[in-house]
Design a protein around this nucleic acid. Sequence first.
DNA 1: GTGAATGCAAAACCTTTGCAACTGG
DNA 2: CCAGTTGCAAAGGTTTTGCATTCAC
Lengths: 148, 148
Amino acid sequence: MADQLTETQETGVFGGLRMTKQRQVVYEVVKDMASEHPTASAVYSVAKERMPNISLATVYNCLETLSEAGAVTQVNIDREASRFCPNLMPHAHFFCSACDAIYDIELREKADASSPWELPEGLKIESVNVAMRGTCPKCGKESCATSK
Amino acid sequence: MADQLTETQETGVFGGLRMTKQRQVVYEVVKDMASEHPTASAVYSVAKERMPNISLATVYNCLETLSEAGAVTQVNIDREASRFCPNLMPHAHFFCSACDAIYDIELREKADASSPWELPEGLKIESVNVAMRGTCPKCGKESCATSK
DNA sequence: GTGAATGCAAAACCTTTGCAACTGG
DNA sequence: CCAGTTGCAAAGGTTTTGCATTCAC
């Protein structure tokens, strides 16, 4: 399964990545915390439990490498610390201003993220980054009950 | 015209903003540099020519205030320094990886930025932020000529 | 064996903050 | 007059870097 990163498999997706213990741990932590979309330091905290000597700089390095290899996506919401996401499907992110949770939002079948936009000719798009902000169902209920 | 920010007009758009020299200068600079989508320090450089005593912190303050008032949009591309944009129409940004330029991309007539996305119910969207990355027409031509 | 990756600490970078002085309404 | 804003310098948080050591292939 594609849930593990080893030197023998995944040579396609992860390219010629040299496989170190640290990279494995970092990748596994991101997978395990996927629903939280952890920051680098959140990853560091958990990674340190599994590998006490790992350093923050190494976590940053690994996350960058994994990002470049396409194994992980770096999610930037405004100027807050980057968060990481192992979901490889094209998707957007929804950030709840109330609880700081991030939700993955899937692209509709056959839809194109750039379709609502008037794209000038000659422009080559490599990636489209979509981040929404608002209130999630959980927090929405509460605020409805209290403020409305 | 809406190009100037004075205490007598624009009370609607700019709310009850106290109008200071610094805010006026900062706003005018952002307008004048609109096509560059300047960073706070780029705004600072130019603002200083017009008002030598202005401080960087004040530029940051003004930009934040103007952002909150809706007169200006803060544009974040990855983790780079925020850039600012006086375009009030709903629009996306296209960032050219080759020359660092930012282009405003208009929303198509009657289109909705969130339409390509499978939105879970109960989620209240307050804003949608769309940033594309790629190569602009100018840089595209060059790279075509040299690399292809 | 060798180039790449790690760990540590220090630096870089953008942005915010504390506080006294000032100013717009 | 007085709350809100400024300027300055110092601090903040996140991320990167330099370099000697270690490791994967």
